[in-house]
Amino acid sequence: MTEKERTLTYRQAINEGLRLAMREDPTVILIGEDQAGGAGCDPGLRDAWGGPFGVTKGLIGEFGPERVIDTPISEMAFIGAAVGAAMTGLRPVTDLMYISFVGVCLEQILNQAAKARYMSGGRVSVPVTIRTTTGAGMGVGAQHSDSIYSLFVHIPGLKVVAPTTPYDAKGLLLAAVRDDDPVIFVENKMLYNTRGPVPEGDYSIPLGKADVRRQGVDVTMVAISRMVLVALEAASALEKEGCSAEVIDARSLSPLDTETILASVKKTGRLIVVDEDYPQCGMASEIAAEVSSRAFRYLKQPVQRITPPHAHVPFSPVLEQCYLPDARRIVECAQGLMTKTAT
């Protein structure tokens, strides 16, 4: 559409979203471990890291240490402080370095951030954004590779988004920061270097809207985060066999855009949900249950879930690759749905 589309990496897109949010609103702050990095060291190293994955790089230069706050390794305290600051007039963006670390600070998310509005009868708002990373594939073992966003989807009072593209990452980040409820912003580590078109300037993507990334008529694939890329790869392979797959990027997990999913399933009659989270009580189960109860008569085949096994992420790179859903599994699943007779 534009004469020459600008492209950014996923990492750069989030950085730009943060920069715009902070320029627009002086109450937006960043607080977490190594958001600048190098605090307390040689002053020249003040932006040594720019976030554990370099996402916040350069922001301290523009906004200073008052708004880009490095903390000790104290998730309980600094995520709780972000919640307290949100209750009292700021819009903090805090950083849970890996979603697997939630064990040390779930209290502040489950019992404080999520419940404050409700328990106060609507008199307290907690406009905090909690950025966190997910995803296997880096060879960092089970304690740094979880994708357990379903844990947050389970909790009333929280909103959860998991952008796949750089475009969505920037737009959803801006929407998350401006939202008056706590939002968990899920970044898959394997996406940081992926590149895509990102317009300059301000735009936001409403929370709760899925994106149909590819139109199709034979089978619907609903995928989350990096699994969208895997589903798209599978859809391309299937196209060569004459199977037309529709790929939906869920983007927003809570609220979930059930209407877009249902509309697609009513068209195709077949559904595969692809998710990197554990299978039990996860998003795949949730989507399968919604579709089964609300579009049962449109289904030509049982709903299929493609997820890792109910097991932890292994370290050994070969095992790790076996663990993750891949395009081949999705293709075989779709082929099965197309050839089998309805049950």
Binding site: M76, F78, G80, A81, T88, Q112
Partner: peptide, 10 residues
């Protein structure tokens, strides 16, 4: 306690 830290930060 963390909430109070946040209010003070604010």
């Amino acid at each position: 306690l963390p909430l109070a830290c946040g209010a003070a930060l604010s």
